[in-house]
Design a protein around this nucleic acid. Structure first.
Lengths: 224, 224
DNA sequence: AGGTGTCGTTGATCTAAATCAAAATGGCTC
DNA sequence: GAGCCATTTTGATTTAGATCAACGACACCT
């Protein structure tokens, strides 16, 4: 190992990549951890309105946070991928947390983390970047409020492929309903958008419906 | 003054309400400040892509942050009202900052603030809540991606009236175009929505078009 | 292999909002 | 007040996406 900087739990290219773990921090963190815990798809990990005692670290699978409205509609606000830490910064959960695919999640005591961050500058910086990055993502999402379904989906795909370790082949481990609820249109529209993109050669699907092979994105004129 | 907790610059019920200013902090902060600076409506305060040397504190008027796309379209991502501090947490400005009405803004050196926050827990906590609150707002905005123009506008109005010091009369100091670009529909639709709400008695406009008198919001069935 | 349930696809129709076009309003200066 | 400008409003038409309905595909289960 030597002087090489080892990283703390990095399943893919997620947020936690940024947290260097010297031994002291690593052991201090492990004292605050519970888990890993397995959740089956669609199972609720935490409810809206609860006190947020834990911060989450996704080990595998995909986790979604969503807002459910009184009329039964739902909006998916964010997806968290392996390596992502989230749930920091809220005393009360503003959104429910659910498994969007079978997922393994680590729980970390929020208060303990806060205490640790008071003395450990590295951790404090890391937590700040976690929130900032999430804010950035939310802003981009919010800014996409007036673009077409096609462009919205392409933006999503681009982001997803980047986050899940860019390659020309993307595996959507989550259901279409989740994607549609995230992008703000319905599942039929999503299906049609994908079909159209397929026909126009932007992407192709071999074998499993969930596996998309991407052509040249940039070739497609989109808003940004 | 005695034991009474004085607050730092609180034009209305904005974010800065939360920052208690003992003398030491106050003077340390004032050393980092530049301003107040006046900006006329639509003037650019900071550009996307620039290094973010300053954090902003709105003294009066309204400031918007927006993303401009290559095709000339624009999305307003957030509005900042008197008392709001923003721009913390980004090394590089992800969005341009512009005056949505004539506005007076205070500039605070970001690096200095960061240094100060390292030793001052109160300030650190405050900065964290600033970012968290902004994230919360962005999430709500993003979650509104699939609701009707009417509901989106009502949600906006509710939030705006709360932020600008709730009363049954709301003064929109910004143009319709800005509101439309924030809500993600065009100005004609916004105008029609308002007209319809007027006809259905949810709100009325006396004198200036910019002044809305609100009826009972809760009576209107909306999604949340 | 055949049945069953979930999930994605396709088609027909409807509707909210976009777009195009023009008029009305209010604010401003002279 | 008259004229001029930016802003908002209203109307006619088009369109993207929603909705309703049915069908196809795949995984799972015995």
């Amino acid at each position: 190992m030597g002087a090489a900087v080892t990283k703390y739990r990095v399943p893919v290219g997620g947020l936690c990549t940024d947290l260097p773990s010297e031994h002291s921090l690593k052991s201090a963190l492990s004292a605050l951890q519970r888990g890993p815990i397995r959740f089956m798809r669609d199972h609720v990990i935490a409810c809206e309105g609860e006190s947020a005692d834990y911060v989450f670290l996704v080990m595998s699978g995909v986790v979604r946070s969503c807002k459910t409205f009184q009329n039964g509609e739902r909006a998916v606000v964010a997806f968290y991928l392996p390596g992502d830490m989230f749930g920091w910064g809220d005393e009360i959960r503003p959104l429910s947390i659910e498994a969007a695919s079978d997922a393994v999640v680590m729980l970390i005591k929020r208060k303990g983390l806060a205490t640790l961050a008071e003395t450990n500058t590295q951790l404090a910086t890391f937590l700040r970047t976690v929130v900032t990055r999430e804010l950035e993502r939310a802003r981009v999402h919010a800014a996409s409020i007036n673009i077409s379904a096609k462009d919205r989906f392409l933006t999503f795909l681009k982001d997803w492929s980047k986050r899940s370790g860019a390659s020309s082949t993307v595996y959507l481990s989550i259901g279409y309903q989740d994607i549609a609820d995230y992008l703000g249109f319905n599942i039929e529209t999503l299906s049609r958008v994908i079909t159209r993109l397929q026909k126009s050669g932007v992407l192709s699907r071999t074998g499993s419906r969930r596996t998309l092979r991407l052509g040249d994105f940039m070739a497609v004129r989109s808003r940004n």
